[in-house]
Write a protein that binds this DNA or RNA. Sequence first.
DNA 1: GTCTATAACGCGATAGAC
DNA 2: GTCTATCGCGTTATAGAC
Lengths: 213, 213
Amino acid sequence: MTQEKLLTPKQRRERNRQEMIDNILSIAREMMRADGVAALSLNAIARRLGMTTPALYTYFDSKHAIYDALFRQGFLEFDQRMQAEVPEKETPYEQVKAAIEGHMAFAQENPDLYQLMIQRPVPGFVPSDESMSVSLNSLRKSSEWLQQILEEAQAGPEMPVEEARDLLFAMMQGLTNLHLANNPDLPVGQGRFGKLPPRAAQLFINAMKSDKS
Amino acid sequence: MTQEKLLTPKQRRERNRQEMIDNILSIAREMMRADGVAALSLNAIARRLGMTTPALYTYFDSKHAIYDALFRQGFLEFDQRMQAEVPEKETPYEQVKAAIEGHMAFAQENPDLYQLMIQRPVPGFVPSDESMSVSLNSLRKSSEWLQQILEEAQAGPEMPVEEARDLLFAMMQGLTNLHLANNPDLPVGQGRFGKLPPRAAQLFINAMKSDKS
DNA sequence: GTCTATAACGCGATAGAC
DNA sequence: GTCTATCGCGTTATAGAC
């Protein structure tokens, strides 16, 4: 909502290219957060920057290229965040809880990036090969991580770790979607679904430990 | 892809209004399934029907009105399906499994309706009051249903039923999203996530029964 | 070379006159 | 039902300014 001051061409030229690119991406994210991922408009971005629409094509080849940059950025920031939070914890329970909460918190704080990463709400947008490999890499890393945690907690053959891992993955995504849909403004820890990560973690830890009495 | 034969205005006039409305909705669904919910085009619908685009406004006030009709139709069909499948089962485990499988199968068979119902991929589309109440009604019914099943299975105070119900709801949505994203063409029962409903049901039934040894 | 603005094309939804 | 017109969109071509 903060209206950018219109700049003269001279003033704008003083900025360097990278600043401008970051600026475009930042404004794009703001608009996606306000009106939804699919509502992004190049005309609107250009208006905000005080330039004409075709001028944007100096920095991005197309609208999809902007989506692509944000898609990739999303996975990179997600990895960074998870790497910083999860390994801190001691017990498997705390690790699972941290993984769920980290996933949900990232989505709550970056709903624009998250929609772009998980749902695919833009017709015709297909990530570039490079961005696709970033995303597959991130998914594989998350997957291996969860599996290791669950193996640590496993005390019997009741449920194969691979299947427990996929169930946990589904739980994280489902909780996130429902939290975003019901309480998009509440931080994780509050709200009908935002407060459930401890319960969810408990559910999985118990499943790996349960004796088949 | 099946090209409709072009009809003369006279022939078209012989059809009654309701037939035409159903026709429009059916073609709209076909296109949404092919290219995504947001890719729906009134021009394309009109071409397929052998009429001009403005003529569609005789049957629907706007593009959003078409979305709205399908949104409502989705919840009605979903309710119908669940009502037919779940209560058949005997044990809580079988009921939970049937609920998960029914949810996933509906989404797999009607991905267009499901996207419209759950995700909200169309910028600016807000369901009408009438459709919104249909949807809230459906969600409330599902919720009460799951809660009753879980209460039947509960053997201790380890987890409040309301929270278990919401976790189960999240699991259903997460499994569905992941199945649609990974194996959209495989029926429920097959595929990495499509085969997990029995495990998921087992997870929840055990959680309600577990003694806190 | 790098960044602009201008103009124009084709497409979309939609409103109004007939 | 049609045809015409308006508006906004992403995109391209072109030409001028630094």
